[in-house]
Design a protein around this nucleic acid. Structure first.
Length: 427
DNA sequence: ACTCCACAGGAAAATTGGGGTA
DNA sequence: TACCCCAATTTTCCTGTGGAGT
């Protein structure tokens, strides 16, 4: 059979465009978000009257519609009042320094590309931003996604600078929308920032399964031929999304992948088994992407964890991981970073969900973090093996002897200490 | 009660690399 | 070209700490 036959064979399922089932797609209506939309519109339209700009803070876990609703509302307002609203969307994970934020806001106000990515003193960027704001005479809405990252990284300085810039603009009205999934976010703020930022907040609660179904169903019906999807498949997507703290993004991604799989299998109907397969694939995709985008030294650290765990099985501690890491760097002829730095990289890995660490004190033998790889160890190793940066690492190497430096309690002692500890606290 | 391990993690110093000015 | 300024990243230096050993 000619492999290209597959190409022109009609699929039995799709009648519309599958790309409407991506999380970046902004739909025309948002089930169960009327209240939030109403509040946002109310608040934003008050900037357009001459009243003082009020800043908004949106709370909610991932996939509860914060970003999508924001983009939707902004675009609708833009249609109502063309050429008077200017938006600037920034993800604070990527742009986390005062400098990069100011630059990006300034650039989106007017794209005269005169501000270099580095080199200017901050106050020059600041005054340049102010003149651009005043010149533009438009309403400016700055959306700061994952705004909590700004506080973690440098104590909220960036936030203060940007709020001040917004406050001081005279001719134009500038408003800031902060998006966060950290409900305790405001507690970490310093009071001068808090009063400016926390003027109005809107909460996006997680979706439950039936709400997720209301989201999925109309979108699916638009692009799928009649009777080409089991009701149960939709329900399952909704249920899995609801389990994951009411995550609509996950439910939507699952649905899309399930449909793709069904098409690839050339079946007539999307079934629950497609959804289950989609769930597995989604998981591996996320893991693969997480590992691929890790910085070089972070990759080596996770590699160090993996090779160490192959020998040690359990109970890896920071010192061992670092010693092993240095060995690997030596093998790969890469200069290693300091142990202090590796300590931070381990925290990064924990945040990325690749490892779990527990602080434990071994009394005489110090206090350190115990490191456990997550259950996808084999896959992680495989993806690292495919990574070109890791190409000259010998994946068969085995060498790790360090344990507690020179002052080595025997393995048995350590195990005793640990098991004694675990008996104390069974959970 | 006191010691001391093996780090955690804060703070300051040093390095790196982009950019400006003369 | 030489030299200065700047932000970001890392290193260096440091203080703090839970609990087994003594």
């Amino acid at each position: 059979m000619n492999p290209f036959d597959k190409f022109d064979r009609q699929n039995n399922i799709l009648k519309g465009d599958l790309s409407t089932l991506t999380s970046s797609h902004i739909p025309e209506n948002f089930p169960h978000r009327d209240r939030q939309i109403g509040l946002m519109v109310e608040s934003l339209s008050s900037i357009m009257r001459d009243s003082r700009p009020s800043n908004l803070l949106l709370y909610g876990k991932t996939g509860t519609g914060k970003s999508s609703v924001t983009q939707y509302v902004i675009s609708k307002l833009g249609e109502k009042a063309p050429n008077s609203i200017l938006t600037c969307y920034l993800n604070c994970q990527t742009f986390d320094s005062p400098y990069s934020i100011l630059i990006n806001v300034a650039r989106s106000i007017s794209d005269v590309d005169s501000i270099p990515l580095s080199g200017w003193p901050l106050d020059r960027v600041y005054s340049e931003l102010n003149t651009r704001i005043e010149k533009s005479k438009r309403y400016i809405v700055i959306i700061l996604d994952e705004i909590d990252k700004l506080v973690e990284k440098n104590g909220g300085d960036s936030l203060y600078v940007i709020l001040k810039a917004a406050d001081e603009s005279k001719n134009s009205k500038t408003s800031i929308i902060g998006i966060t999934n950290d409900t305790s976010f405001t507690e970490k703020l310093d009071s001068r920032v808090k009063s400016r930022l926390n003027q109005e907040s809107i909460i996006f609660p997680p979706y439950n399964a039936s709400e997720l179904k209301d989201i999925l169903e109309p979108r699916v019906k638009d692009i799928i031929k009649e009777n080409s999807i089991e009701e149960a498949a939709i329900n399952l997507c909704a249920a899995i999304g609801a389990q994951e703290h009411g995550d609509a993004r996950k439910a939507i991604d699952l649905m899309r992948i399930a449909i793709e799989l069904a098409i690839r299998e050339n079946s007539d109907c999307v079934t629950t088994s497609h959804v289950y397969k989609a769930r597995d694939r989604l998981e591996t995709d996320v893991l693969k992407e997480t590992i691929r985008t890790l910085p070089t030294h972070t990759k080596i650290v996770i590699l160090s964890c993996i090779t160490a765990s192959e020998i040690n099985k359990t109970n890896m501690i920071t010192g061992e991981i670092y010693a092993n890491y240095k060995d690997i760097c030596h093998d790969m002829k890469i200069p290693p970073v300091s142990s202090r730095r590796v300590s931070d990289l381990l925290s990064d890995l924990e945040e990325a969900g690749l490892i779990t660490t527990t602080m434990k004190s071994l009394g005489r033998y110090g206090r350190t973090r115990f490191i456990q790889l997550n259950e996808k160890e084999k896959e992680m190793k495989k993806y690292l093996g495919e990574d070109e940066e890791m190409a000259n690492f010998n994946f068969n190497r085995k060498s790790i002897q360090t344990r507690f430096g020179t002052n080595d309690p025997t393995e048995a002692t350590l195990d005793k200490i640990i098991s004694a500890k675990e008996e104390e606290r069974p959970n």
